[in-house]
Design a protein around this nucleic acid. Structure first.
Length: 290
DNA sequence: GGGGGTTCCTGTACGC
DNA sequence: TGCGTACAGGAACCCC
């Protein structure tokens, strides 16, 4: 399930291959890959073919490839991987991937012909061509404007975050998953950061002290940084880097996916509970409900 | 506009 | 073996 570290691994993997590349062709095999692009597949293809890619950018779990500027048009190819989306770098004549939805045929000035394959089992991921607009000191696609900066963004405002969290009455885990408060955190890293901070996931955010929220933010950053260093979290074939390789962070998880197993800190059993149509994993001994 | 629940989707695991 | 069902969850959407 791609969260910030996984998307960043994909962005970093794509960057050297796509930067400066010309989009020679676009093949759309499944329109569901374009639910973010309401104008449809033909329009999507027209807007991309013949354009050059400038770089690879990211905010939270959104990834985008800004296109070299043409007159009156500042656009980017936006991608959200959803739960199972993959961006794979392949040779131009590579056979179809199992859940291939879309393929970009690129020409790189140094590396020559290559393909970027968007493959997605559960079809929650999707792509679009979107207009780029300024957002403070940065430029983002309009579809990303409502998303808050992520905790490793140099312009992330720690004080505003602490304030925003403490204004919410919802469970703190729900607030961590709210991409308009802080982006990039999904179920895995929310559980891990709460475990590291010894905070019960159902604690109303407004009940946390400013110091607790600051500590939580530190733990969020620590868990994201460690996952990034280990290439992201892979449980099955649903998350891989651009070369199809899995990440190693699943071996470092303390709470997520460890229901019934001993807490690495106190030895008590990790509890798995239903939460927001998904699961929460926490240690009821270390993370007391207040 | 905050809050909380529902929906979209497919492959896998599991019970009967 | 075959069928039905639960489960995984990011983000948009809905109603209160």
């Amino acid at each position: 399930m791609p969260e910030l570290p996984e998307v960043e691994v994909v962005r970093a993997g794509l960057a050297p291959a796509v930067t400066g590349s010309l989009i020679a062709g676009v093949s759309v095999f499944d329109d569901r890959a374009l639910t973010r692009h309401p104008a449809g597949a033909a329009d999507f293809v027209t807007r991309l073919e013949g354009r050059r890619i400038d770089t690879a950018s990211r905010r939270g779990k959104f990834l985008w490839l800004p296109l070299a500027r043409t007159e009156g048009d500042d656009a980017a190819l936006v991608a959200h991987l959803g739960m199972s989306g993959q961006m794979l770098l392949r040779a131009p004549d590579a056979g179809a991937e199992r859940h291939e939805r879309l393929r970009l045929h690129l020409h790189h000035p140094v590396h020559g012909e290559l393909a970027v394959v968007f493959s997605d089992q559960r079809t929650f991921g999707s792509l679009a061509v979107d207009r780029l607009v300024p957002d403070g000191p940065t430029i983002v696609p309009t579809q990303v404007l409502h998303i808050a900066r992520d905790p490793i963004d140099p312009f992330f405002d720690d004080l505003a975050f602490v304030d925003a969290v403490r204004r919410r009455s919802s469970a703190v885990k729900r607030v961590l998953l709210d991409q308009t408060v802080v982006s990039g955190i999904g179920n895995i890293y929310a559980d891990e950061a709460l475990w590291a901070s010894r905070i019960h996931p159902e604690t109303p955010a407004s009940r946390l002290s400013a110091a607790s929220v600051r500590r939580l933010l530190l733990e969020v950053r620590a868990v994201l940084a460690k996952a990034l260093a280990e290439g992201g979290t892979s449980f099955d074939a649903q998350y891989v880097n651009v070369n199809g390789q899995a990440g190693y962070f699943a071996h470092s998880l303390n709470a997520y996916g460890r229901g019934g197993q001993p807490c690495p800190r106190c030895g008590g059993p990790i509890l798995r509970e239903a939460f927001m149509n998904r699961s929460s994993h926490y240690c009821p001994r270390c993370q007391r409900r207040r």
